[in-house]
Amino acid sequence: MNTLFIADLHLCAQEPAITAGFLRFLQREAVHADALYILGDLFEAWIGDDDPEPLHAEIAAALKMLQQAGTPCYFIHGNRDFLLGKRFAQASGMVLLPEQQVIERYGRKILIMHGDTLCTDDQAYQEFRRKVHNTWLQKLFLALPLRWRLKIAATMRARSQHTNQYKSEAIMDVNPQAVEQAMLRHHVQWLIHGHTHRPAVHQLTLNDTTAHRVVLGAWHTEGSMVKVTAEAVELISFPF
Rank of each mutant, 00 (worst) to 15 (best):
K139M: 09
K139F: 07
K139H: 14
K139D: 13
L140K: 13
L140D: 13
L140P: 07
L140Q: 14
L140F: 12
L140S: 12
F141R: 07
F141D: 08
F141W: 11
F141A: 09
L142M: 06
L142K: 04
L142T: 03
A143V: 07
A143H: 12
A143T: 10
A143W: 08
A143Y: 07
A143Q: 12
A143S: 14
L144E: 07
L144W: 09
L144G: 04
L144R: 08
L144M: 12
L144Q: 08
P145C: 02
P145R: 02
P145A: 01
P145D: 06
P145N: 05
L146K: 01
L146Y: 10
L146Q: 06
L146F: 11
R147E: 15
R147L: 11
R147K: 12
R147D: 14
R147G: 06
R147T: 13
R147M: 11
W148R: 12
R149A: 02
R149L: 02
R149C: 01
L150N: 12
L150F: 13
K151W: 09
K151C: 06
I152S: 03
I152A: 09
I152N: 00
I152Y: 08
I152W: 02
A153T: 15
A153S: 15
A153N: 10
A153P: 11
A153L: 10
A153G: 11
A154M: 08
A154I: 03
A154D: 13
A154G: 09
T155A: 13
T155L: 10
T155D: 12
T155M: 10
M156F: 13
M156E: 14
M156N: 14
R157V: 02
R157T: 00
A158F: 00
A158W: 03
A158D: 05
A158Y: 01
A158P: 02
A158N: 04
R159Q: 05
R159F: 02
R159Y: 02
S160L: 05
S160D: 04
S160Y: 06
S160A: 06
Q161H: 08
Q161C: 03
Q161W: 05
H162P: 07
T163M: 00
T163L: 04
T163C: 03
N164D: 08
N164H: 10
N164I: 09
Q165W: 01
Q165K: 06
Q165D: 03
Q165T: 07
Q165Y: 03
Q165E: 04
Y166G: 04
Y166A: 01
Y166S: 00
Y166C: 00
K167D: 04
K167L: 15
K167H: 11
K167P: 03
K167T: 12
K167Q: 10
S168A: 15
S168T: 15
